[in-house]
């Protein structure tokens, strides 16, 4: 092979290898980029307006999901609650580990509409930490929250869904 051709082949091969590596590097790069620029993170409003507004009532619909056939029973005690903006509220979810082994879960919240998250201020939530239940064990898990009284008028109904993810293996791995 001519030297000049060899050089082209070597340079191109380096490009190919580095692009293959770059694809894997993008996994952490994307999250770093989003963190730095603040894109796609539901940043909370810093100051919080907690003046109670009894003239308004917001309908909060609670949804409980299990990810990927998680053998847990999980539901809210009340599927719908009516709350005033600014008032302190408490809702309770019930969870039971129906499997034959001790399991750890992490709950991930999701709001619909998405921008409701900006006005939803959680003081205590079972989603703040992982929950471990022994086989057959049950637990009542509370969420204490306020809704910002500056919440726009078009947000009269909010759906809040929690999905339970099984993190037992992940916890075991980091522990060892």
């Amino acid at each position: 092979m001519q030297t000049r051709i060899k050089i082209v082949v070597i340079i191109c091969s380096i490009v190919v290898m580095s692009m293959f590596g770059f694809c894997f590097a993008l996994v952490p790069l994307y999250s770093t980029f989003c963190k730095i620029t603040g894109i796609n993170t539901a940043l909370r409003v810093n100051e919080f307006e907690s003046q109670m507004d009894q003239t308004r009532t917001i309908r909060l619909e609670l949804i409980a999901n299990n990810n990927a056939n998680l053998p847990w029973i999980f539901y809210p005690l009340k599927a719908t609650v009516l709350v005033h903006p600014g008032a302190l509220n408490k809702i309770i979810f019930f969870a039971k580990n129906n499997s034959k082994k001790s399991m750890t879960i992490q709950a991930i919240p999701s709001f619909a509409p998405l921008n409701a998250a900006y006005y939803f201020h959680k003081i205590q939530c079972f989603c703040f930490e992982q929950q471990t239940l022994k086989p057959g064990e049950t637990k009542y898990m509370p969420v204490i929250f306020r809704i910002d009284s500056r919440i726009p008028y078009d947000l009269s109904t909010i759906s809040l869904a929690y999905t339970l993810f099984d993190v037992t293996q992940k916890v075991a791995r980091t522990a060892t």
Partner: peptide, 14 residues
């Protein structure tokens, strides 16, 4: 091709 195809290879590997 040499810039884009390795990314496809990477993503199907993942």
């Amino acid at each position: 091709l040499i810039i884009a195809m390795p990314v496809l290879a990477g993503v199907v590997t993942m």
